[in-house]
Structure formats: structure tokens, C-alpha cells
């Protein structure tokens, strides 16, 4: 029972990590049709920002975590100005290469500046263990799960009810129609990029204390988040989040029940199986032709 619960918790934590990254990817893809290969590196950047704020600047975690998200929102503005705004109306190949180039720059800059040895981020909540009868859980994990749920709820409400959220959905559904009713597509592009970067920031702020922080920490995460975006139904944010949790839980299950070495193989096998039965992803709509 304990083992099962621990593995379930591991699965949910990993799922939260993938989901926070995948949500940003799905927003960028769904609204702007941008394939962002550097999105995982935003998560890595956020983790390093948190590390610097805690270990170098000496802020307490409660101040450093929100500041990380804020700084990542600023990074989103820069990302939009330097890359996205120039490639937004280009074919996906150009978007892919330019974001890939950015990812190469970020990973290698991190290697140069911090060296390949992983670093550990200390959060006071790591040492607070909550005792729930037969199971014990660290407060940081509780924070991860709570923070993830709250942020997704906020995203859902924001997209559904705010004026900007509606405009974001409008751009996603028909960019030409959005321009025709007077929605400034560039402004929506900026907002979307900032929101996506902030989610990566949140991932770093919440999850970095649980895992080791290093230049290549996000490479696999990004690939799995991509798988989640595709399996979730291209650009469907809700679908991507659900699929990310499915991947996390699948990993935990296969680690416990089958083998550690082949976990990734099982996860991709599962993704392909899902696509075999749901070619348009879990939540995608079948497209009518003609």
C-alpha cells in the first residue's frame, strides 16, 4: 500500500513537471502555431534562476519562487521580441530551427557558466514531512501538486472568461477572422509567449527543489512534453495536460512493475498505442475533408 502510494505520488509529480512544460508548448502551438523546441530550456533557466536567487542572492524560498516566475515572464517578453515575432508567420521548419538554435545556445551557455555537475536547490519545505496515517509525504510535493492545480484552474478561467483570454482563443481558432474583428495578433502573440514562459517558470520554481538542476535536465522532459502535446490533440491545452499526467503515471507504473531501463520505451510504446486508436489525439477533433 505504501509503495503504491509513493509510486502514485512520484507519477503525479513527474506528471506535474511534464504538464507545466506541456501547457506552455500547447499554448504556443495551439494559439500561435509555433513549435518551440527551446521550451524545455526555459524550465531549465527557471531552475537556475531559482538556484541563484536562493544560493547566491540568499533570498528565502517564499520570495525566490514568485520572483522566478516573474523573471521568466520577462524572459518571455525577450523571447517574443527576438525570436517569435520574427518567425510567427514563417513555415514550421523555420520555427523549429530557430527555437532549436536557441535551445543549443541555452544548454551550452549553462554548461559554460555552471559546469556539468548537477546542483541541488534547497527548499525548506523539502524537510517538512506530513504524516498522513500510514503514508508520509514531503510538503514540497504537496506544494507542487497544489500549485499545479491552482495554476491550471487560473489558466482555464482566464482563457474562458477574460477579454484577452477570449482573444487568445479567437486567434487559435481563426487567425484571419481575429484580424478582421480587430484583435491585434502581435499583442496576443506576446501575451501567449509570456504566459507560456511563466508556466515554465512555475515548473522551475516548484519542481527544481525535488530534482537535480543541470544544463541538460530538461531535454527528456521537453521530448515527453511534446509527446503529451501530440497525444493530447495538437494544441489542445486540456488534452496536453491530461496526457502529461498519463505519461507521468505510466512511467511510475512501468518503473515499479516492469523495468527501469526500458521505461522510456514503454512510455513511447504507450503513446503510439494511444495514437493507433485515437489518431487525432485524446481530445482532438476529427477533421472533415471536402
Amino acid at each position: 500500500m505504501d509503495l503504491l502510494f509513493t509510486q502514485l505520488l512520484n507519477g503525479l509529480t513527474a506528471g506535474a513537471e511534464y504538464a507545466l512544460v506541456a501547457a506552455g508548448l500547447a499554448l504556443l502551438f495551439g494559439i500561435l502555431q509555433i513549435v518551440n523546441f527551446a521550451h524545455g530550456e526555459f524550465y531549465m533557466l527557471a531552475a537556475f534562476i531559482l538556484y541563484v536567487l536562493l544560493a547566491v542572492v540568499g533570498l528565502p524560498y517564499y520570495a525566490a519562487a514568485p520572483l522566478t516566475v516573474l523573471l521568466m515572464a520577462c524572459a518571455g517578453v525577450l523571447f517574443y521580441a527576438i525570436v517569435i515575432s520574427r518567425v510567427i508567420s514563417r513555415p514550421w521548419q523555420i520555427q523549429l530551427i530557430s527555437t532549436l538554435a536557441l535551445s543549443i545556445v541555452m544548454i551550452n551557455l549553462a554548461i559554460v557558466l555552471s559546469g556539468p555537475t548537477p546542483r541541488y536547490v534547497e527548499s525548506p519545505l523539502n524537510n517538512v514531512i506530513l504524516d498522513l496515517g500510514s503514508v508520509r509525504i514531503s510538503a514540497q510535493r504537496v506544494l507542487v501538486l497544489l500549485g499545479t492545480i491552482v495554476s491550471f484552474a487560473a489558466l482555464y478561467l482566464g482563457l474562458k472568461y477574460t477579454r484577452t483570454g477570449k482573444a487568445m482563443r479567437a486567434v487559435a481558432q481563426n487567425r484571419e477572422a481575429a484580424a478582421v474583428v480587430g484583435i491585434g495578433v502581435p499583442v496576443i502573440g506576446l501575451v501567449t509567449t509570456v504566459v507560456a514562459a511563466s508556466f515554465a517558470g512555475l515548473a522551475g520554481a516548484l519542481i527544481a527543489p525535488l530534482y537535480a538542476v543541470g544544463p541538460t535536465m530538461a531535454v527528456l522532459v521537453n521530448i515527453k512534453a511534446f509527446a503529451a502535446v501530440i497525444v493530447g490533440g495538437f494544441g489542445n491545452v486540456k488534452g496536453a495536460i491530461v496526457a502529461a499526467f498519463v505519461i507521468g503515471l505510466l512511467e511510475a507504473a512501468s518503473t515499479t512493475l516492469i523495468s527501469t531501463e526500458y521505461t522510456d520505451a514503454i512510455v513511447f510504446g504507450g503513446m503510439i498505442l494511444i495514437l493507433l486508436f485515437r489518431p487525432n489525439g485524446l481530445f482532438g477533433k476529427a477533421v472533415r475533408v471536402g
Binding site: K166, A167, R169, A170, Q173, N174, E176, A177, A178, V180, V181, G182, I183
Partner: peptide, 29 residues
């Protein structure tokens, strides 16, 4: 648009996954 020039282009130009009401509201964006 604000000055008062509007267009209905050729081809589908609405938001298919929004309700008619939401579409009309978007028209007044």
C-alpha cells in the same frame, strides 16, 4: 475598424468553437 470600416472576407471567417453569442461579442472586440 474603430473609424468604421469593416470587412467580411471570402472563406470562413468566424470562430468555429465559440457559440454564436460569443462570435457576435468578438465582432464588437
Amino acid at each position: 475598424l474603430k473609424a468604421g470600416i469593416a470587412i467580411v472576407p471570402q472563406g470562413r471567417c468566424n470562430f468555429p468553437q465559440m457559440t454564436i453569442r460569443e462570435n457576435l461579442e468578438m465582432g464588437a472586440y
